[in-house]
Nucleic acid binder design. Structure first.
Lengths: 346, 346
DNA sequence: GACAAGCACTCCCGTGACGAGAGTGCTAAT
DNA sequence: ATTAGCACTCTCGTCACGGGAGTGCTTGTC
């Protein structure tokens, strides 16, 4: 058999058995072990034949001759694909999640706790990001002069996100108040994107007949006071310490931790693989494409939507040797919880 | 010599030599190595005698007979004490710091970058915390009804800190606006502490003659809308990955990373050892007192003040085997830079 | 043809022996 | 007071060795 799908029922069974025992033990799995566990009582020799076929087809790898077999990325993909989505989270885990997220109203805090509880339950890295929300409705802006050349800009969106930044600008408080009033009166309820676009249009068009206030608005706009772009994201990464137990190579361990510390990289990862359209949990095996230091790692994540718009995403990141079923149900459970909680309060 | 101070000039010299070579190499240092480096050309045998004395006095420890000596915590304390404060930061390091912090106006961002640059330069863990600032002057509050039972509270202080939280409250936007107007008009410029105290007093005293607005204020107050307490701190911890190289014991490494992930613990550490009164950098050797998982670790930190009030603190955390001189000058340099930048703009 | 049994072979890994290297403590000499 | 010398200790890297686990292949059986 060369690269043909291992369509046979027997092949399938043996492949998933290999994947599962490897995930459980972490050691190359040999034909004998497999034969013992196999309920049909096949002999090691038979299993060896099948294994040889699977190896030819690219599903198994051998660290060295006379060692057991290790699943390849392909094997994991196949394994995940044939998992039934029917597994339920244990009550224990459900309780932990409920306790952890109960009564939290703040999106930020929700994200923070989510990353924490994800890492806790999965024993891997839990990640949650809240995107700045260019599609969020503007609720209120506020500008405050802090001192020489410094202005504090605060933007509140209707979903409860608060972004603040300090700009280098020299405007009086009166000017700032005027600009804020203008924006609040004209753009309340607009999406950030729409507001910015309209503002840009007006500034362009009415350039000749500027009054003092519009000049202030322009300055604020140009300095990014109203930005709600990709940079305006909060990322929570927790459980990096869990990787210590799993990764033997110290060099690699350090690289991994470093990568996880660079939050933008994590954001990029999630962004690259999760999109708004997908409905369910997505499993990405082999992150080395997007991030070389993450080879042999997988991402199990889902977007969080509020009213159709992506508000953020959550994920578990761990080695290929991860409990897929468990991680998938956990992520899925929290994502649904999220949707329910966030969407009910609209 | 039993527990007497190693007052002798020779002892001092040898002790610092031991500490320095141990810091540099990480291996127990023997009499021969020391003799080679010693400029007075003492023989190994003589040095052995001195070392025996130092060991008796509690400054040196021996992993096993016939191994070199390792400095004890006492030795590090003694070593740090006798360091001259005159060392200057290398221009290279100064440039890195300047580049990294240049043009940053926002306190939060300043803290974030500080922790980053600290970890970068020291090759250890960099920490920076901004305290909520109970002594900060109130600039502005803003309340917004988000939906059923949810209210967003935003507090802006004069120093540019923005705190937001979502409360479970059911007040109309009109009520919220009234309460905000009341607080802004009456308490602008007050310190958070004073404002809270006065508010509590008034609520107590005028309980009988409440109007609708004061009732709203009370609800907000009770729900913590105006809290600016210890919980309201932001912590930045960076460079945890650097510990991988230094710590051999995996079990311990994991514990360390876990501790650093629990931000409150880090805050507690800084809080326990750094106080407003101290002028310069403080070096704390042996963190196991406050945090068992941190045994054999040291903290090199300084508070950040604005106008006499503590606004936060910064620190390097690393193993006892750290380049003290370098870490001290780095922390001191950034602390001074901080003071300069923050205080100039007042 | 599918499965099983047997067998020779490969490779890893734990164990114990062994010697080099580094360091110590002590004693005797300067 | 210092130092040279010496016997002793402890670690660590290397190497040989054998057990264990696993493979591939060949042959045999239903």
């Amino acid at each position: 058999m060369q690269s043909g799908q291992p369509i046979g029922e027997r092949e399938r069974e043996i492949l998933t058995a290999i994947v599962e025992t490897f995930i459980a033990t972490g050691e190359p799995v040999g034909s004998r072990t497999l034969a013992r566990a196999n309920r049909e009582g096949l002999s090691p020799a038979t299993i060896r034949n099948v294994m040889a076929d699977l190896a030819d087809a690219g599903f198994l790898e051998q660290p060295h001759t006379s060692a057991g077999r290790v699943p390849s990325s392909e094997a994991y993909r196949y394994y995940v694909e044939q998992l039934t989505g029917k597994a339920r989270l244990s009550h224990e885990d459900e309780n932990i999640i409920q306790d952890s997220l109960h009564g939290v109203a703040d999106v930020q805090e929700f994200m923070e706790r989510t990353s924490h509880v994800l890492s806790l339950i999965s024993h891997n890295v839990g990640v949650a990001v809240a995107v700045g929300g260019p599609k969020n409705a503007l609720e209120h802006v506020y500008f405050s002069r802090l001192g020489d050349q410094k202005v504090l800009a605060v933007v509140v969106t209707r979903s409860g996100l608060v972004r603040d930044r300090v700009l280098r600008l020299d405007l009086s408080q009166a000017d700032l108040d005027g600009a804020a009033r203008f924006i609040n009166e004209n753009f309340r309820g607009w999406t950030m994107d729409a507001m910015r676009a309209e503002l840009a249009r007006r500034l362009e068009q009415e350039r000749s007949e500027y009054d003092r206030m519009m000049a202030s608005v322009e300055q604020l706009y140009r300095q990014g006071a109203l930005a709600a772009d990709d940079a305006a994201q909060t990322v929570y990464v927790e459980g990096a310490a869990n990787l210590v137990a799993g990764e033997q190579d110290r060099q690699r361990l350090q690289e991994l931790l470093q990568t996880l510390e660079e939050k933008q990289k994590v954001v990029a990862l999630l962004g690259a693989y999760l999109d708004a359209k997908q409905e369910a949990v997505r499993v990405v095996i082999g992150l080395d494409q997007a991030m070389p230091s993450m080879r042999n790692f997988v991402l199990i994540g889902a977007p969080v939507r509020v009213g159709g718009e992506v508000m953020g995403s959550l994920a578990v990141i761990g080695p290929t040797r991860i409990d897929y079923q468990h991680a998938i149900t956990t992520v899925s459970y929290i994502a649904r919880l999220f949707d329910k909680l966030l969407n009910e309060s609209e």
